[in-house]
């Protein structure tokens, strides 16, 4: 993404933001609430067309995992997972086979596939959302705070799932999060966004590679990183000081901000 700028209702939320992600690299993007992380993710996914700037994609297919799953409430888990494939011209048999493969990859039980999202637990919904992103066989995955609403134990299980899938399939990705520990656990590199969306301030690289880091390494890194000047706003920003119109990314990217 090169020099991306974007405004909503004459308010500039992103100002010349550039970010390069290498093939197979998982980059965590952190920054305080309202800094434009979700908008950048929406631009990367093609949901929003930026006012200025260019996106150069060196991959064929991407998938996206959203905050709060965004599963179709009227469709079963199976139909939700298959949804991206139904938009194309794949034969039904292939859709079914790939849907089951994706469901299996995220350890969704066959008996859960016929349930509606409202009948699934939070963890199952998150798994279905990941499976939906995987079903397109993406080379690049965008995660927009997908586990923010989950309890710590479940969040950790979902992180493990992402790690194992990334290792097995070798996809790169952009992982939006508020949580420094999550970023340190999952990513090759942590990009830090300016609190007013005026570019990427810089990057931090946790030791080792995702999945191979010990808990002690992650803990030490996050403790050290908290004192890093790059993360000053993330660690110290008081969300009450953020004005209402720019603090509206609690449900992911929204057009209001």
């Amino acid at each position: 993404m090169a020099t991306i700028s974007h405004s909503f209702s004459a308010r500039r939320v992103l100002d010349t933001v550039s970010l390069v992600i290498r093939p197979g690299e998982l980059v965590a993007l952190v920054g305080p609430s309202g800094c434009g992380k979700s908008t950048l993710a929406a631009i990367a996914a093609g949901i929003v067309k930026p006012d200025q700037g260019r996106i150069l994609r060196q991959y064929q297919r991407h998938g996206m995992v959203f905050q709060q799953s965004r599963l179709l409430p009227w469709a079963s888990a199976r139909d939700n997972i298959a949804y991206p494939l139904t938009l194309g011209t794949l034969p039904r048999a292939q859709i079914t086979a790939r849907t089951h493969a994706a469901a299996q990859a995220v350890a969704l039980l066959p008996e859960d596939l016929d349930k509606l999202p409202a009948q699934l637990s939070g963890g199952m919904r998150a798994r279905a959302a990941i499976a939906r992103a995987l079903v397109v066989e993406p080379e690049f995955l965008i995660f927009d705070e997908p586990f923010a609403a989950l309890d710590p134990a479940l969040r950790r299980r979902m992180q493990d799932l992402v790690l194992s899938l990334a290792q097995a399939r070798g996809f790169g990705g952009l992982f939006i999060t508020h949580d420094l520990h999550e970023a340190a656990r999952l990513s090759h590199r942590i990009a830090v966004m300016d609190r007013q969306g005026k570019g990427i301030l810089g990057s931090l690289v946790p030791p080792g590679t995702p999945g191979a880091r010990s808990e002690a390494q992650i803990f030490d890194f996050t403790q050290e990183a908290r004192n890093h000047p790059l993360l000053h706003d993330l660690v110290n920003v008081d969300e009450r000081a953020v004005t209402l119109d720019c603090a509206c990314d609690t449900l992911g990217f929204q057009r209001c901000c």
Binding site: A42, A45, I47, G63, M64, R70, L72, Y83, L87, R255
Partner: peptide, 14 residues
């Protein structure tokens, strides 16, 4: 719920 349409857009829905 327009967020569902955003989800579909991210997967290339026309």
């Amino acid at each position: 719920d327009r967020r569902l349409e955003d989800m579909a857009t991210s997967f290339g829905a026309s």
